[in-house]
Design a binder for these strands. Structure first.
Length: 277
DNA sequence: AAGCACACCTGCTAGC
DNA sequence: TGCTAGCAGGTGTGCT
């Protein structure tokens, strides 16, 4: 589901509902979700009784930082959702794998049908760079400076879409937003990084920031299946402003020519042959 | 070394 | 109506 704008929307929701609360109990029933812990009870042991100090995000990762610097790390992958339930009597949805009870009677619930997502806790003193999978993460897409991104793009021979989605180069961009970014930058997905002019690579950075900021303002994108919702279960609205993504055959948001769909690496790419070259 | 295919899962939809 | 193939927001591995 989620790319930077969706994860940031979830982060803001968690910030307003969780900061200052104490975790009073944890039920980690989804073994695959907590697979980083040899014993699923380790998650509860690390976090129970602790106060939530702040919520951070880097790329598509969320960090619930507790008062003693214990961290709960969450990645939603394709189908994960974090939902805040106001009443613990509210029935659990299918595929609810982890439930945190809070001292105000609310619950934080991790729901994930495809079970690609992860929830785990690390002890105080663990640096993010020490966590497998996080060590190689590049700068967050809303933090990276233009020169670094331009240099990284122009160094590689693969298509610019693959580069934007490579979390080691820049963290937070996935399949939806790479399509929207490249449309605004007027570049085809398969233009090789090494072939980009400095100006064209600069447009990628500019478009990336523009698209992501707008998408955050619209609380992310929810496609037809509404697999992405925020912590209150509300879908985002940025999908109505997509110019190409998931719009095959419909008019390009800029020129009106029908949007085309291509397949690369088993995934769909949407683009406008006239606007993007 | 870089680039690619594939595996990991479940659910939904389009087409027969 | 019911079956099947194809597709879905991501990433880690292992092969060439």
């Amino acid at each position: 589901m989620p790319e930077l704008p969706e994860v940031e929307t979830v982060r803001r929701g968690l910030e307003s509902r969780l900061v200052g609360r104490t975790i009073v109990a944890v039920a980690a029933t989804g073994r695959r979700t907590v697979r980083r812990h040899d014993d699923p009870d380790d998650l509860a042991r690390l976090v129970t009784g602790r106060n939530v100090a702040r919520i951070d995000r880097h790329g598509k990762y969320l960090f619930l930082v507790l008062a003693d610097a214990t961290m709960i790390v969450v990645h939603l992958r394709m189908s994960g959702q974090l939902l805040v339930a106001g009443d613990r009597a509210e029935p659990l949805r299918p595929h609810t794998h982890v439930v945190f009870d809070l001292d105000d009677g609310h619950q934080l619930r991790f729901v994930d049908p495809r079970t690609f997502g992860e929830v785990f806790a690390v002890a105080p003193g663990t640096a993010r760079g020490d966590i497998a999978g996080l060590a190689l993460l590049g700068p967050d897409a809303l933090e990276i400076d233009r020169r670094s991104l331009v240099a990284a793009l122009r160094r590689r021979r693969v298509g610019v879409k693959t580069l934007l989605m490579d979390q080691r180069i820049v963290a937070g961009v996935g399949n939806i937003y790479s399509d929207e970014i490249l449309h605004r930058a007027r570049l085809r997905f398969d233009r090789r990084g090494v072939d980009l002019s400095a100006a064209a690579a600069g447009r990628v950075h500019h478009s990336m920031v523009e698209v992501l900021v707008e998408a955050v303002e619209h609380r992310g994108s929810s496609l037809a299946d509404e697999q992405y919702v925020d912590v209150d279960g509300r879908p985002g609205t940025f999908q109505s402003l997509h110019r190409v993504h998931a719009r095959a055959g419909q008019p390009c948001g800029a020129c009106g020519r029908p949007v085309e769909r291509a397949r690369t690496g088993g995934r769909s790419t949407y683009f406008c042959r006239r606007c993007q070259r």
